[in-house]
């Protein structure tokens, strides 16, 4: 185990990648098993296999716990993976779907959908679910387009970083105000729906929602994984990268669409779960180096682990009540972001 952790970046790439990813996959399996067996209606995999549990708890486990586990892993992988990809795209370790306003933009669009377009009585129907998802995707996509347009106009350099973060701040503020207005004009039923969804929680996962995530999120993840080599090249700067064989516009389109799709879907399903996309890739980059061929899949596994663990804590710490997991990750990520900023201002 220690030998694995201490592997140097000079080892042959495939050997090292295999070791790292196998270790992370094992950790993910462990955290899933732990999460499965903890809390009310927890059943350890062993109990399940040996058929010792009573029928009711098995049924509850299958209907409620399993989809929640899988959704948590998928959303965690998506948020951390898109964080890593956006950081590569902006060539900046501070890019993150929450900080840049992607998540809150998606959130605003979902809230718009719930309050303005969703007919009464459709609360749980498929129209509502897919409508929310499409709204989330469009919200994330439009924010991504705005932010990326700004970044392009500014070129590289520290001014651009500042602009990006400020743009994210502005979008977050706008989305917050928009959300407030929507909450003000919403009916009681819509208000309840909004607040249930808005805090960032995996509580409402059912197979119906989880299946959508389990189909679409892997598509977005594959889109990102296929961009790994090109993201590496982009780090040379656009002119040099073009000289090294990179079709930058195609890469940007692919990453922007995949992250918007993934983040929009995550926000539509679980609300805003912040900072995962900043925290996970940053820690892994310290360990593994900046190469995206390893960083992207490792971030996806790491994000899945972190969200499954955080969700289990959110479920059990204040049992029988639940803390929204989004609050937990923000409690973890906010201070870390401040620490990053302080460290950067010292080195720059």
């Amino acid at each position: 185990m220690m030998a694995l952790l201490l592997r140097s970046r000079r080892e042959p790439f495939h050997q090292r990648a295999l070791g790292v990813l196998a270790l992370l996959a094992a950790l993910l399996a462990l955290s899933l098993a732990w999460s499965a067996s903890s809390g009310t209606f927890g059943l350890s995999p062993l109990t399940l296999i040996s058929d010792q549990a009573d029928a009711l708890s098995v049924q509850v486990w299958w209907q409620l716990r399993l989809p929640r586990l899988l959704l948590g892993a998928a959303v965690g992988a998506m948020l951390a993976g898109s964080g890593a990809a956006m950081q590569g795209l902006f060539r900046n370790p501070l890019a993150d779907p929450t900080l840049l306003g992607l998540a809150s933009g998606a959130g605003l669009f979902v809230a718009l959908w719930i309050v303005l377009f969703q007919g009464a009585g459709h609360g749980a129907g498929p129209v509502s679910l897919y409508g929310q998802f499409i709204a989330g995707f469009l919200g994330a996509l439009s924010v991504c387009a705005v932010v990326f347009g700004l970044a392009q106009r500014q070129g590289g350099g520290s001014a651009a970083v500042m602009t990006l973060l400020l743009a994210g701040l502005a979008i977050n503020t706008l989305a917050g105000a928009g959300g407030g207005i929507l909450a003000f004009i919403a009916s009681d039923e819509q208000l309840r729906q909004l607040s249930l969804w808005g805090m960032g929680t995996l509580t409402h996962s059912l197979w119906r929602t989880t299946l959508v995530a389990l189909v679409l999120i892997p598509l977005a993840l594959i889109g990102l994984l296929r961009s790994a080599r090109e993201l590496d090249l982009l780090q040379l700067g656009e002119t040099t990268a073009h000289g090294a064989g990179l079709d930058a516009p195609r890469l940007k389109r692919r990453v922007v669409v995949a992250t918007s799709l993934g983040v929009g879907l995550c926000v539509a399903l679980t609300g805003v779960i912040g900072f995962l996309g900043l925290l996970v890739p940053h820690c892994l980059r310290l360990w593994l180096g900046p190469g995206h061929r390893l960083l992207l899949p490792a971030s996806m596994l790491g994000g899945a682990i972190l969200l499954v663990v955080a969700d289990t804590l959110a479920r059990t710490l204040a049992a029988p009540a639940e803390i929204p997991v989004g609050l937990l990750t923000s409690l973890l990520g906010g201070p870390y972001f401040l620490y990053l900023l302080m460290r950067r201002s010292r080195t720059c």
């Binding site: 900046n92 590289g156 040379l236 700067g237």
Partner: peptide, 27 residues
Amino acid sequence: LASRRAMVAQQEPPGFDWRVEELIALG
């Protein structure tokens, strides 16, 4: 084209901490 010509543009500020060997192998 990349197997026939290479371009070294003016330096941009580096974003991430590539090792020298890793950077040389990019592309």
